[in-house]
Design a protein around this nucleic acid. Structure first.
Lengths: 142, 142
DNA sequence: GCGCTTCTGATACCTGGTATCATCTGCTTC
DNA sequence: GAAGCAGATGATACCAGGTATCAGAAGCGC
């Protein structure tokens, strides 16, 4: 596992006005190679495994930068602290996570919009923020 | 503000096989009197204000007990760490929070079930857990 | 009132995350 | 290719939220 970020990830980092450094490359690469969202400790460990010289401040700062760049999202998972996920698509969206294999699917914009619209109508709210995280078992894992 | 839990809260604590102690009474009372979800620090402060002898371990332990009893829910709020909320209705449900006045409404079971069902169908998942937290501005605050 | 069980408070610890600051380095300009 | 600077880095200390442990206190059924 080389753990170097793909061209598309790099170009999204550059597009956000941020520099490509070996550390960011490595951290983004680790996230890209991960099959499931990585928790903070898992990510720190995985990064340390590949380059013990990278400090924890750098890891968290890089996560913040990658979130700002829309490359990474923090997904709250049931029970624990949640994890960091490298998203192939930009922009805020929501996830459906398989608790067994860790597979992540993006929810469809339409179904989310329909639900949020119905809630807004029923309760008379203007909804600014929707945090929707669903988890269960995918077709292969049930 | 007496900050003593109502009868209905007490009976729900008892129904969960837990004891009523002055500390639990006070903590439940503080949550019951709060208009908006209380963050950990706010809650610790509010409890200390009324009885400085109550330790932080007791507060967190009591929150855990109250959550187990279905009396309290932890609601993740956008941006920050979320807060603790005393729910008038038992059982797992979801919330709609006004970011301005802190008012909380429960989402209707039907609208949630409809959404979760649609997602399950579209993605071929069995959905075990849905974390839905919506926030915005209520009719009075926009 | 007795005794079991649960609860409490103090304290130390853990995890996730941020702040600070001196040093280093990627990138632009020439 | 070298210079300069803004931005990135690593070390470290710190913070908040939460848990573990343990001796002692208190609730409640008998």
């Amino acid at each position: 596992m080389l753990c170097v970020a793909s061209e598309s990830v790099r170009s999204r980092i550059l597009a956000a006005g941020q520099r490509i450094t070996p550390q960011r490359d490595l951290i983004a690469g680790v996230l890209e190679a991960a099959e499931a969202p990585l928790g903070a400790q898992e990510l720190l460990d995985a990064v340390a495994l590949r380059d013990a010289g990278i400090g924890r401040a750098t890891v968290f700062r890089t996560l913040q930068s990658l979130q700002d760049a829309g490359v990474v999202q923090h997904v709250p998972l049931p029970g624990d602290q949640g994890g960091y996920l490298l998203c192939p698509t930009s922009g805020h969206h929501h996830h459906l996570v398989c608790q067994r294999c860790g597979r992540v699917e993006d929810l469809l914009e339409d179904e989310v919009a329909l639900f949020v619209g119905a809630v807004a109508r029923d309760h008379g709210f203007d909804i600014d923020h929707a945090g929707l995280e669903l988890s269960g078992h995918c077709s292969g894992c049930r």
